[in-house]
């Protein structure tokens, strides 16, 4: 299955990296958002399988997006991954409370990301199937 993925990060290099890492071999179809606002636009009209969000963005930060997604009916089924530079910080703890499915600490590699997504997808299938 090809994961319909949204990457929200204000760094274009990170977005390009995630796109290159996931679109190779059709693992995923990737859409990008540079800001929380763009993400809101995309979330309103798409149902994503995976949403990868950077915590530290100006204006609408990753936590706020997670909170929004938690309450939004269209995004209930999505796997939510939070990217942060420190996995043990206060921000990351708040993310866990808001329903993030997993963390990825920067820097991460291609395999880390794919394994994470694959693992979470399998887990959610077990639960629902």
């Amino acid at each position: 299955m090809t994961f319909h993925t949204l990457i929200v990060d204000d760094s274009s290099a990170v977005r390009a990296f995630v796109r290159a890492a996931l679109e190779d071999t059709d693992f995923a179809r990737v859409q990008e958002a540079e800001t929380g606002f763009e993400a809101l636009q995309l979330l309103a009209s798409n149902a994503f399988d995976v949403v990868i969000v950077d915590i530290n963005m100006p204006d609408i930060n990753g936590l706020e997006l997670l909170a929004f997604m938690k309450k939004s009916p269209r995004q209930q089924g999505a796997i939510k991954i939070l990217i942060s530079t420190r996995a043990d910080s206060l921000d990351a703890k708040r993310g866990a409370k808001l329903g993030a499915d997993a963390f990825l600490a920067k820097p991460f590699g291609v395999d880390d990301l794919r394994k994470l997504i694959r693992g979470l997808a399998d887990r959610s299938e077990e639960v629902s199937g």
Partner: peptide, 27 residues
């Protein structure tokens, strides 16, 4: 949603003199 970037910019300009924006919470 389609014009949200411009609207936020405009809001920022208007608010700028009077207040500091702490954060935006989507509702």
């Amino acid at each position: 949603l389609t014009a949200i970037d411009d609207s936020i910019e405009a809001l920022r300009d208007v608010v700028h003199d009077d207040a500091e924006i702490i954060t935006y919470l989507p509702s």
